[in-house]
Design a protein around this nucleic acid. Structure first.
Lengths: 337, 337
DNA sequence: CATTTTCTTGCATACGTATTCAAAACGTGT
DNA sequence: ACACGTTTTGAATACGTATGCAAGAAAATG
C-alpha cells in the first residue's frame, strides 16, 4: 500500500481552474464565484482531496493546535476535562495535542509544544515552573492555567472558587455538630490546596472553631491512605475529615471502613472536593463540592479564542462558583425548626 | 506581546554559516563537522531557536503526529490507555493528537486526521465503520484498532484474549457453586462483547451449564442499572452475574445493594472485566479479568513504529493474555482437599 | 454606448525546513 | 608537489497552501 497524496494542484487540473481557485474554494470568506466553487468541490470529492493543514499552518501561521499539558489521568477530574475540552475545540476547528509530564522535564515539553507551533496552551499539570510560564507568554502564545493559579505569572487562569468551597465545607461540618474536624491536604505547593485549606480554616474560624489535626496526602491514592492512618493513630480520633479532593477521599474512606472498621458517617464524616463521577456511586456517596467543569471549560475556550483572534495576550482570571453537594458521607446539620 | 519567530535563517546568520548547516546540525545523522555544529547550537541557544516541526513535516512528510480516536473517557480504562500511550510515544519523539467522537461523524473526523498528515492512527472508539477503515488503509497510514477487532478490515488490531477471559469467568463461577448464572452484555456490535460473551458461553458449556438470563447494558452506567433491574424483576433471581466490563459492574453492584438490598457476594456474585483501578477500591472489591494494558500499549507502539519506519502497511493482530483477578465480589470455589 | 464600479481569476511569491548537487576543503600516501 | 579519496559546505530547490497584485470579466451607472 502506498501513500497517494492529492494536492490542490491536482484538483485544480481536474477542475480546469488555477490552484488559487481551489484554495479559495476551501476558505469560507474568499472571493470565488459559486460556479467555480461548485466545480472545485466536485473535483475535490472525486479525488478525495482534503486541504493539508500542515501546509496551511506554514503559510498562515495557524496550526489549529492547542497543547494540553497534564501530569496524570488517575484522578477522574482530568479525563472529563480533556474530553469536554477536546469536544469544544473540535467544534471550533481546533484540536488537542496532548502532552503528559511529571514535574521533571517540563522545559523540554514546552520546547516541543513550541516546535509544533501551537496556538494556545492549557496547563492542567500540577506544578508549573514560573520561568516556564514567562517563556510561554514571551512568545505570544496564550496560556491558560486550568484549575491552578500562579499570582506572579503572566498566564491566564481558570479556577473554581476554592476558597469559598472550603468555607462552605467548614460551615457544613460545624453545623453538623462535629467537634474534632481534621484536614487531609493535597500537594502543599498547589494553589488548589492552598485555597481550599485557607477557605476551610477561615470558615472554621467564623464559627469559632479551629482545625483539630492535619496531615498531607499529596493528591495521591496511597498518600491519602497513609495520611489517614497517621490521623487516626492518635488516642482521640477526629469525627470529621475534609479531604482536599475526591480522589483521595475514596482512599480515605476505604482505610476508615476496612482497616479501622469505622462506619461512615455514623462514626466519622468525610467530605471531598471536585464531585467526580465516582462520588455519586453507591459505594461512596460522597458529600463534596462540585467544580463546575463545564463552566470552567467554557471560560478556558473563550479566553483562548479571544486571544488567538486578537493576536494579543492579556492576563485574565476566571473564578467560577463552587457548590456544596450533600450526599451520605457526612452527618447532616440538625433541622432548625 | 508579539510573536517573535526565530528561524533557521536567523541562526545561520548569527553563526555565520548557511541555513543548510543549521538544518544539518539538528538532524542526528547528517554530515556536519563537530566544529560548525557547536557554533550552530550555541547560536541557536542564544536566540531560543527550535526547529519548526510544521515546516519539517512539510518537506519530509513526517509530522510526528499519531491520531488517537476515542468515544468517551468515562470508563477509566481509556484514560489510562491514553496516558500510557502518550508517554510511550513522547519518548519516541511522537505526539498524540486527540479526537473525540460519538458514532455519528466518524467520517468527518477521519478527514480531519488526514488533514493533519498524521503518521498513524489508533482507534479506541467503540464503533468503526468498515468503509472508514478501508479508507485509512488506502492512504497508507497504519491503523491500529485498540481493544477491538474487525475481521474484514485491513487495519491491525490489539486486543486481550477476551474469549479466554470469558471462559475463565465461566469456570470460576461454576466452580463457585452458582446455579443461575446471568450475563449483562455491553454493546452488542462490539467485538469485545462478542468475544467475552462467546468465551463465557463456551466455558459454561464445558461445565454442562448454560446462561440463565441475559440483558444488555450497552457499556453505559445507566444502561447497566436498567439491565440489572430487568434481570431481577423475574420471580427467581440469578445467583451470579458476569457483567461485560467493570464500568457497568459498578453500576450493577450499586443497584443490587441499594435498590434491591442484596448482599454481595452472599446473595449474589458479580464479576466484571478490565480491572480498572476502581475495581480494587474498597467500595467494590470487584473480581474481574485484567486486561494487560501495558502489554497492549507496547504492542500498539511496536506495530505503529514498524510500519511507519518501513513505510508499508501490513495487517497484524496481537492478542495478549487475560488474567483472572479474584477479589471479594464473587463467592469463591470451595477448596478441593 | 461609454465609463465606472464590483467581482473573479490566475500569476507569482512566501512560509521554514530538508535534501540534492556540485564545489570546496581537507587529509593521505606517494 | 601531486593526485586521489573523503568530508564538509553553500546554493538552489521542493514541499502544499494562502494571499497581494494586476488584469480580465461582469455588472452597474450615467
Amino acid at each position: 500500500m502506498k501513500r497517494a497524496k492529492v494536492t490542490s494542484g491536482d484538483v485544480a487540473k481536474l477542475a480546469q481552474v488555477s490552484q488559487s481557485a481551489v484554495s479559495r474554494s476551501f476558505s469560507a470568506d474568499a472571493s470565488v464565484s459559486a460556479d467555480t466553487r461548485a466545480k472545485v468541490l466536485k473535483a475535490a470529492r472525486k479525488l478525495g482531496y482534503r486541504p493539508n493543514v500542515i501546509a496551511r499552518a506554514m503559510i498562515s501561521g495557524r496550526s489549529r493546535l492547542i497543547a494540553v499539558l497534564v501530569a496524570y489521568l488517575d484522578n477522574q477530574f482530568y479525563p472529563i476535562v480533556i474530553e469536554q475540552l477536546s469536544r469544544a475545540l473540535q467544534e471550533r476547528g481546533f484540536h488537542v495535542l496532548l502532552f503528559m509530564t511529571d514535574t521533571g522535564n517540563q522545559d523540554l515539553v514546552v520546547q516541543q509544544m513550541m516546535g509544533y507551533q501551537v496556538e494556545g496552551i492549557v496547563m492542567a499539570s500540577a506544578a508549573l515552573s514560573s520561568t516556564l510560564a514567562r517563556e510561554c507568554a514571551q512568545t505570544g502564545i496564550p496560556v491558560v492555567l486550568f484549575n491552578r493559579y500562579v499570582p506572579s505569572s503572566p498566564a491566564s487562569s481558570v479556577t473554581s472558587d476554592n476558597i469559598e468551597g472550603g468555607r462552605l465545607i467548614a460551615h457544613f461540618l460545624v453545623e453538623g455538630g462535629h467537634k474534632r474536624i481534621a484536614f487531609i491536604a493535597g500537594s502543599e505547593d498547589s494553589s488548589t490546596n492552598r485555597d481550599r485549606e485557607a477557605g476551610f480554616y477561615r470558615g472554621l474560624a467564623e464559627c469559632g472553631h479551629t482545625v483539630w489535626a492535619r496531615t498531607v496526602g499529596n493528591y495521591s491514592f496511597e498518600g491519602a491512605a497513609e495520611a489517614t492512618r497517621q490521623l487516626c493513630a492518635a488516642k482521640i480520633r477526629p469525627d470529621a475529615i475534609f479531604v482536599a479532593n475526591d480522589h483521595m477521599a475514596f482512599s480515605v474512606m476505604d482505610v476508615l471502613r476496612n482497616e479501622l472498621k469505622l462506619r461512615i458517617p455514623n462514626d466519622i464524616s468525610i467530605v471531598g472536593y471536585d464531585d467526580v463521577p465516582e462520588a455519586s456511586w453507591g459505594g461512596y456517596n460522597l458529600t463534596t463540592v462540585r467544580q463546575p467543569s463545564g463552566q470552567m471549560i467554557d471560560a478556558t475556550i473563550s479566553i483562548l479564542m479571544e486571544q488567538i483572534q486578537r493576536e494579543t495576550v492579556i492576563r485574565s482570571a476566571a473564578v467560577l462558583p463552587a457548590e456544596l453537594i450533600i450526599r451520605q458521607s457526612a452527618r447532616l446539620p440538625k433541622e432548625k425548626s
